[in-house]
Write a protein that binds this DNA or RNA. Structure first.
Lengths: 151, 151
DNA sequence: AGCTAATCAACAACGGTTGTTAGTTAGCGC
DNA sequence: GCGCTAACTAACAACCGTTGTTGATTAGCT
């Protein structure tokens, strides 16, 4: 995501207001690599701004996602996580501590291999070229043990 | 997953009972490639057994997952899906119709490339061999448009 | 200064899933 | 076929993460 300053400008350009709450959410995420949940972001923001509501944090996070400044990552274990890293990258989830680590993207390799790998469910195995899948994204989730957990 | 007959034996061996409900759930999933949700399985079972409860279907599905006969797949869009295909394989999710397709696994490639790709969050970029991640699984989710939806 | 977005509080409601209770059914080993 | 006990049912309540609602208030921006 862009820096808080740059983002403030973008927000104003969209006709939205740069409120302290929004800024606090932005600053809580900027440069962060820990993939916090909305709840954790809320905690961080409340340290500086004790009366902020969870609702407002969700609102700000969703706005950032809509603006394409933050990626929402759903890893299948409960709450969604928010990631300011917009580079194509994959994730490693520790099955013990549940922490999420960034992994350099394997996407180019994957997408290029997709056409050959797609399993034709139509049953018409003999005709390969009638089947077209458009791949917009490819995300990889590795699971295992991280270094801190004896991996 | 194994055939209903084989599974019946396994269930008995575990001291569990082969009830018509359980069998109906098994038969609803056996050989199925459509990745149904619990709700859809419930619908299928009720066609033959109108009084079965959703609770029981969940119970049977979870038992199958615990037995390792069915894979639970969480794709980040609502309900979990259940997949009797135990081969290592990936998934393609149509962003329009939400259908899920099996894709031949890219896992071997992925896991072998993981060690080189892991992004060392410790900041100690110069020392590569102190960081150990144990990768148990790697799942890939492709998203895009399927053939039926103009892909 | 004035328009209007944003926030707050407080609460309801959602969807998916699990827990609970108590009474009934039925699978399985003998 | 008996008896033990797992499983089922119905009818709920409760969970978690998230979103909607309402109405009053605050404050960003032009």
């Amino acid at each position: 995501m862009q820096s808080p300053d740059e983002l403030a400008t973008r927000i104003r350009e969209q006709g939205m207001k740069v409120t302290p709450q929004r800024l606090a959410v932005i600053e809580a995420l900027y440069g962060d690599g820990s993939h916090p949940t909305a709840d954790i972001v809320w905690d961080r923001v409340r340290e500086r701004m004790p009366t902020v509501s969870l609702r407002t944090v969700y609102q700000a996070l969703n706005d950032l996602v809509e603006m394409g400044e933050v990626q929402m990552v759903e890893l299948g274990n409960g709450a969604a996580r928010f990631d300011p890293n917009l580079d194509h990258h994959d994730h490693f989830v520790c099955r013990n501590c549940e922490r999420v680590y960034d992994v350099k993207s394997t996407r180019p390799r994957l997408v290029s291999s997709f056409a050959a790998a797609i399993d034709d469910d139509s049953g018409d195995g003999s005709d390969g070229d009638a089947v077209h899948y458009t791949v917009d994204s490819a995300e990889v989730i590795f699971r295992g043990l991280c270094p801190d957990c004896g991996g």
